[in-house]
Design a protein around this nucleic acid. Sequence first.
DNA 1: TGTACATCAGTGAACGCGCGTTCACTGATGTAC
DNA 2: TGTACATCAGTGAACGCGCGTTCACTGATGTAC
Lengths: 185, 185
Amino acid sequence: MSGYHHGDLRRALLTAAVTAIEKSGPAALSLRDLARRAGVSHAAPTHHFHDKAGLLTVLAADGFDRLADQLTAARTGSFLDLGVAYVRFAVANRAHFAVMFRPDLYHAGDPEVIAARERAGRALYDGAADRAGVDPEQAREEGLAGWSIAHGFATLWLNGALPDQGDDPDAAARAILRHLRPDGP
Amino acid sequence: MSGYHHGDLRRALLTAAVTAIEKSGPAALSLRDLARRAGVSHAAPTHHFHDKAGLLTVLAADGFDRLADQLTAARTGSFLDLGVAYVRFAVANRAHFAVMFRPDLYHAGDPEVIAARERAGRALYDGAADRAGVDPEQAREEGLAGWSIAHGFATLWLNGALPDQGDDPDAAARAILRHLRPDGP
DNA sequence: TGTACATCAGTGAACGCGCGTTCACTGATGTAC
DNA sequence: TGTACATCAGTGAACGCGCGTTCACTGATGTAC
């Protein structure tokens, strides 16, 4: 704390953004509010992110990166594990997850975002393709089916929409994702 | 058109809201903008919906009602048809769908919303339970799995997140939803 | 058929608010010599 | 070890904007007698 210079404002703003988004969603985010939370003048954020979309762009890229990491790590397990890893990521990184799929809110054309998103996509598809010596079209469909059910479950969970929703998303996800057909139709 | 009295302002505002939400999402909705589109003074909407959340509440209730109708109609078909009906609803009623699962945006405790949501929930669960002489817990899980994959697919489709996404959500949904296991694990 | 009156729907001015962005600035830090 | 200077990070005042909401109002419509 130098008094004038914050020291790590960029990181502090990102952390504050995550907290704010977890509470009120990405649409309600305000740069002035983040500056307030970081104890800094309201014009300071501009210095690090240029504008609001710039900040969300960083969050989105960061989210896709983390997702790619977790999916890649889960590749050693079963196809089911891959889906569970997806849900776990979403629940553990609600703010990032909420931003990632709202490309209208950030600079979706940003090279870093594109790269991170492709990395995550590859981790998911490779994970799906791995698990059978199957036809590519078949693998594609199964990948999409797995993505859909994991994404849907995570979304419903985060919305609190599920009836009798407990507090163990991992176990709940596993029970539901099991119902994906593990082999061809 | 009486000049002073609009005649059907309530309906006009709802229609304008749907258009606006389809374009920019529910968070960006503004009552003043709706009034402008309806060619009416900016204070007029208050008269019909009390406040912004009030308008979204009507939209949410209406959405759950329509969904319930469509799911009920699909009960005569297979479990797969139920899921396809869900996706079809989401794509055909993007604005309603976007609001329904954002209870922070409307008066989620409103009796009409609650009733409509329960009606939709029942249609979905009954549809799932129908299709087997199975164990209730089994039926519950299959219902959730079906809901998850349909919801996830619809969400990804609406976000334009799917690779090589065509323009026939019905067929695409059918191909993916097929991968849900039709019988016990 | 006419008149009085209540009710309803929409007006328009005003309020206070928080926001994003721009701008010339200043304090702090690091580097070259 | 000291000094000059460039660079970087943060300041604070100012701008213009669109918003939701309140309010006393007025025009239009329907109903009772």
